[in-house]
Computed example of a mutant assay.
Amino acid sequence: MKNVFIFTVIGLLFLSCKPEEKRTDYIINGDASGVYNGVRAYLKEKDRTGRERIVDTAVVVNEKFTFTGKVDIPKPSVISINSVNGNLNFMLENSVIDISIDKANISQSQVSGSASQTDFDAYNQGYAKLKKESVDLQNELRNIHRQLSSGSSEQLQSKKDSLTDLFTAIRQKEQDYPLNFTRTNTDSYYSLVIIEREINKKNANIKDYQEAFNNLNSELQSSAAGLYIKANLTTLMVAFEAKSRVDIGKIAPNFEAPTPEGKTVSLNDIKGKVTIIDFWAAWCGPCRRENPNVVNIYNKYHSQGLEIIGVSLDGTRSQKDPKQAWVNAIEQDKLSWTQVSNLSYFLDPVAQLYNIQAIPAVFILDAEGKIAAKNLRGNALEAKVKELLAL
Rank of each mutant, 00 (worst) to 15 (best):
D72H: 11
D72P: 02
I73N: 15
I73F: 13
P74M: 07
P76W: 03
P76M: 06
S77G: 05
S77T: 00
V78W: 01
V78K: 03
S80H: 11
S80W: 03
I81M: 07
I81D: 02
I81F: 04
N82Y: 08
N82H: 11
S83V: 06
S83C: 11
S83D: 05
V84Y: 01
N85L: 06
N85H: 12
N85C: 10
G86A: 10
G86V: 01
G86M: 04
N87L: 15
N87H: 15
N87T: 08
L88S: 01
L88N: 03
N89L: 11
N89C: 14
N89R: 11
F90R: 00
F90Y: 05
M91D: 01
L92S: 05
L92M: 02
L92R: 00
L92G: 01
N94F: 06
N94A: 05
N94Q: 10
S95V: 02
S95L: 06
S95Q: 07
V96I: 14
I97L: 05
I97V: 03
I97C: 00
D98K: 07
D98F: 15
D98E: 15
I99D: 00
S100R: 15
I101V: 11
I101D: 01
D102S: 09
D102K: 02
K103I: 06
K103N: 13
K103Q: 11
K103M: 08
K103Y: 03
A104V: 15
A104W: 07
N105G: 13
N105I: 14
I106H: 01
I106F: 02
S107D: 07
Q108I: 00
S109P: 01
S109L: 02
Q110N: 10
Q110D: 15
Q110A: 14
V111G: 00
S112T: 11
S112V: 08
G113A: 14
G113P: 02
S114L: 09
A115E: 10
A115Y: 12
S116G: 04
Q117E: 11
T118Q: 09
T118N: 14
F120Y: 14
D121L: 11
A122G: 13
A122S: 15
N124V: 07
Q125N: 07
Q125C: 12
G126H: 08
G126I: 04
G126S: 12
Y127L: 10
K129P: 14
K129L: 09
K129R: 08
L130A: 09
K131N: 13
K131F: 11
K132P: 05
K132F: 10
K132V: 06
S134T: 11
S134I: 05
S134H: 05
V135F: 15
V135T: 09
V135G: 06
V135P: 12
D136Q: 10
L137Q: 08
L137G: 04
Q138H: 13
Q138W: 08
N139S: 07
E140N: 12
E140F: 08
E140A: 09
L141V: 04
L141M: 08
R142A: 15
N143I: 09
I144F: 01
H145E: 08
R146Y: 08
R146C: 10
R146E: 09
R146M: 10
